[in-house]
């Protein structure tokens, strides 16, 4: 083990951390933009729901690595694509990764949100309508905020998965954390040092993400009174079954 080689290239690893975080955040943000309409249309069986279901099925049904390869090496094979307006974007490994990761994250997030929307208590919607809110207001002021709150724990998982999924970027020449690890490994003909350093960095970032989500959950899921879930189990007065919130992993 020779970690001097890793410390010698600390600036590369720092750059890798930046690239990984940058990719993760963009993919999650764009993924959320896709997931909001997709999840709503799936939950409500609108005209577009077959389209949304198809999209979610395809992107959850295939590995992220395959999606990335298809977009990067696959599309680049076609003259038609290379001559098209999209090529300046698809030419860059960075944008190929952003596209693949966003579509992937969008599919998973849509599925998480769909589930959360489906489990919205009827009373919440009825109450909102009784107050005279319009359909649009009900959706965006009551339904979605409530669903997104309940989706928080699962979404925390999605964030961690996406963070780890960005390692795929390293196979299309992007110098993310793993990419830097591979480069350092290859430069000095070593195997463990680069990978171990990358693993440690991912663990640190994951730890921060998990802590952040715990804080956000404490704030937004306060009404579920998480600490006293077991105490409330016997409480049948309200007829409300406490929602079991899966612990973060």
């Amino acid at each position: 083990m020779n970690f001097d080689l890793v410390f010698k290239h600390w600036d590369l690893f720092l750059g890798g951390v930046w690239v990984t975080l940058h990719l993760t955040v963009i993919a999650l943000a764009l993924g959320m933009l896709i997931a909001l309409p997709a999840s709503l249309s799936m939950a409500r069986n609108t005209r577009f729901s077959p389209l949304a279901r198809g999209y979610v099925y395809v992107f959850r049904g295939t590995p992220l690595l395959v999606q990335t390869y298809l977009i990067y090496y696959g599309l680049g094979q076609f003259e038609l694509v290379r001559d098209s307006f999209a090529w300046p974007l698809l030419r860059e490994a960075w944008w190929c990764a952003v596209i693949a990761f966003s579509l992937n994250s969008g599919a998973y997030t849509a599925e998480i949100l769909r589930g959360a929307i489906k489990t919205t208590p009827k009373g919440e919607i009825e109450g909102a309508m009784a107050l005279g809110l319009s359909g649009r207001q009900v959706t965006w002021l009551v339904l979605m905020p409530s669903a997104m709150r309940r989706a928080l724990p699962q979404y925390g998982n999605e964030v961690v998965f996406m963070l780890h999924g960005t390692v795929v970027a390293s196979v299309i020449t992007i110098q993310d954390i793993l990419g830097v690890g591979r480069t350092v490994n290859a430069k000095y003909y070593i195997a463990y040092e680069g990978f171990l350093s990358a693993a440690a960095l991912y663990m640190i970032i994951t730890f921060v993400v998990v802590r952040l989500f715990r804080l956000v959950e404490q704030r937004y899921l306060k009404h579920l009174n998480l600490e006293n879930v077991s105490a409330r189990k016997s409480d049948s007065e309200t007829g409300e079954v406490p929602v079991a919130v899966p612990a973060m992993r």
């Binding site: 090496y73 680049g76 094979q77 290379r82 030419r91 860059e92 490994a93 020449t173």
Partner: peptide, 11 residues
């Protein structure tokens, strides 16, 4: 091989 792929693609 991947180098050639991207050379042809113009990346």
């Amino acid at each position: 091989d991947e180098v050639y792929l991207d050379l042809v693609a113009g990346r």
